[in-house]
Design a protein around this nucleic acid. Structure first.
Lengths: 142, 142
DNA sequence: AAGAGTGGTTGACATTGTCAACTACTATAA
DNA sequence: TTATAGTAGTTGACAATGTCAACCACTCTT
């Protein structure tokens, strides 16, 4: 292991993705930042996520998630439904505006991913993702 | 390309690395954050980097780099030398304290990287790094 | 029914990132 | 050579993001 090149490569890539995504979001005046996009995607997938689900998934402070979700609600993208299993929590779902935005975001991030993966073999890309997930697990079980 | 899994895997991994690294740095009271570590590493490599080199390498605002370097100087880890080629800029080098810290940091990040890459084939790891670098380049040439 | 624990919210604060203006210097080109 | 445009670094002001502790309402033990 010499000089943490894996780590550096990961940081560089994550930063490049965030910059690129932010500038696309900015240019299209979508009014959301990259973390919002990730959260919208999760909410849209089940339409029954709780704030704690999201905080756990992204390993973020729950206070941060509360505020982020409130922004999405203020923008009319997300709504809360009562959670029948637990009166302390609410289930999050996309509004129709949220679904519309999700469509735009999906094409946007697909375009970005396809540009990003240009010239890379499908097999290598699959290896990349598998290794990334494995490394994440290795770090989280500490 | 379905649903930006590559992007999500990268964000998760980068976040896991940053959390792990931050907590190690915190536990050992090293007084530096992860960005500081990355900058120290670059400075130590040449002992003749300028602030602009670092800003360009990490794609960060030069104001941010100025302040970060000043923190390293205040901590006695880095020193400025005049740049014979350009009186506006200074060359950055590690002090002896900076070099001592660098040794600690190297073993720390090597240990982290080896834990992180446990159970991963060397070949797959090489593919990971190569693909990460290629994707970064793809995004930066936009 | 009591006490410990959890989901979510809020306030206060620290850290990090961004933007514009400015100084000192360098590079270009008439 | 001198005007002019450009660059390295600094500073101030601010926005965005992350962190910590306290708190309320509710749930889970036992």
């Amino acid at each position: 292991m010499f000089n943490a090149i894996t780590i550096e490569a990961t940081f560089h890539l994550a930063h490049a993705i965030k910059q690129q995504l932010s500038s696309l979001l900015e240019n299209q005046d979508l009014g959301v930042a990259s973390m919002h996009v990730r959260v919208l995607k999760v909410i849209g997938k089940s339409n029954a996520s709780t704030a704690m689900d999201i905080a756990g998934l992204f390993k973020r402070d729950k206070a941060q998630i509360t505020r982020l979700i409130n922004q999405l609600i203020d923008q009319g993208l997300v709504q809360k439904k009562p959670n029948p299993d637990d009166k302390r929590s609410q289930l999050l779902a996309l509004t129709s505006a949220g679904q519309a935005l999700q469509e735009i975001l999906r094409t946007l991030s697909d375009e970005m991913e396809s540009k990003m993966t240009q010239g890379i073999e499908a097999e290598d890309l699959a290896t990349f993702t598998r290794v990334a997930q494995k490394m994440t697990r290795n770090l989280e079980n500490s």
